[in-house]
Amino acid sequence: MTMAEQEPELDMTRSQVFGEVAELYDAARPGYADALAGDVLAYAALDGRTAVEIGAGTGKATRSFAALGTPLLCIEPDLRMAEVLRRNTAGFPQVRVRAGRFEDWQPDGRRFGLVYAATSWHWVDPERRWDLVHDALAPGGAVALFWNPHGTLDPRLQAALVEVDRRYGLDRTPHGVSASDYGETPGDWAGVREWPEEECRRDGRFTDLRAVRYRQEQYYDTERYLGLLASVSGYRVLPAERRERILAETAEVLDAHGGGIAMDHLTDLFLARVRPAR
């Protein structure tokens, strides 16, 4: 998911549209920083224990953790996304995929060493999510929450694209934020309030809170960027004819500005662990 999909309230309609284009989602969506999985695992110190992934999608983050030998239980609510996830992790026998919502999953007395969510935490019921994570983790177990927001580097191109968006009533698209609008610290996302640190501190059952930012520039040619947009929920919920029109107009703008778009890609990571039992 992109920053454009991080709504302040849980929107199940948007959260369930990705399976319509599971293959496109898998091909077009960017992954996460190369160092992230190793850093999370170093913090969690699993020592062979299983990690749980919330809303694994098609495995954008899963494969990085699996490649490092991590035993994984991946929970994905959309059957179509789960099917692609199973295919993408077929070479990792230590990965299990469970179709269903994290809110409906029962750990059945098991306690895990790590629970992580890759751009999916904001889809989990905000009234229950910290309880659910705490109940799934062993004392000292870690939670890792991360997102990959991005900003447009060329302000003139951004302004032209935003003008197209406005004509179609879209205001939270992947190119809607300038790279310069992001702050210097993890979670400072140009006014989007999704960073979990304050919520976690209020909960009080977690300790050793940390935040890490990774950064890299990425270029999308017109075709690849249109594929990314076509997988975004704000575009998916548009009527098909209207969606095709906005994508066509967006392509015209991109082609008029050199045939693509350069983005500043961030990966912002939040870490915490369950307080040890006294």
Score class of each variant (00 low, 15 high):
162 V>N: 10
191 G>P: 07
139 P>Q: 15
137 L>T: 11
180 S>I: 03
136 A>G: 06
148 N>C: 08
195 W>D: 02
160 A>P: 13
190 A>P: 04
182 Y>P: 03
204 G>K: 07
137 L>E: 07
144 A>K: 05
205 R>C: 05
205 R>F: 07
135 D>Y: 09
130 W>M: 14
184 E>M: 05
135 D>G: 13
161 L>G: 10
203 D>K: 09
167 R>K: 10
142 A>C: 05
166 R>G: 13
190 A>Q: 00
188 D>P: 00
207 T>C: 08
177 V>D: 01
168 Y>M: 01
136 A>H: 04
135 D>Q: 15
131 D>T: 14
199 E>N: 06
191 G>H: 02
150 H>T: 11
177 V>Y: 02
150 H>N: 13
175 H>L: 11
161 L>E: 08
159 A>Q: 10
152 T>M: 06
208 D>N: 15
143 V>P: 00
132 L>T: 05
150 H>P: 00
188 D>Y: 06
132 L>I: 02
185 T>P: 00
131 D>Y: 11
157 L>D: 01
143 V>L: 05
198 E>S: 15
131 D>N: 12
187 G>F: 04
163 E>K: 13
170 L>F: 06
196 P>A: 04
197 E>L: 06
164 V>Y: 09
173 T>A: 11
177 V>N: 02
140 G>V: 06
130 W>V: 06
141 G>P: 00
133 V>F: 02
175 H>N: 03
203 D>Q: 06
136 A>V: 01
151 G>T: 11
168 Y>G: 01
152 T>L: 08
151 G>D: 03
188 D>W: 08
148 N>G: 08
151 G>M: 09
135 D>V: 04
183 G>M: 10
189 W>M: 03
189 W>Q: 00
207 T>D: 04
187 G>I: 04
184 E>N: 10
202 R>C: 00
161 L>C: 12
148 N>I: 08
194 E>M: 15
169 G>R: 07
207 T>V: 15
140 G>S: 07
132 L>M: 10
135 D>R: 13
157 L>Q: 05
168 Y>E: 04
142 A>G: 01
189 W>Y: 02
191 G>Y: 01
155 P>F: 10
147 W>M: 02
187 G>T: 00
178 S>V: 08
198 E>F: 12
158 Q>E: 05
148 N>E: 08
177 V>P: 05
206 F>I: 02
196 P>W: 01
159 A>D: 07
167 R>A: 05
139 P>H: 11
161 L>M: 12
155 P>D: 02
183 G>T: 12
154 D>A: 11
205 R>A: 06
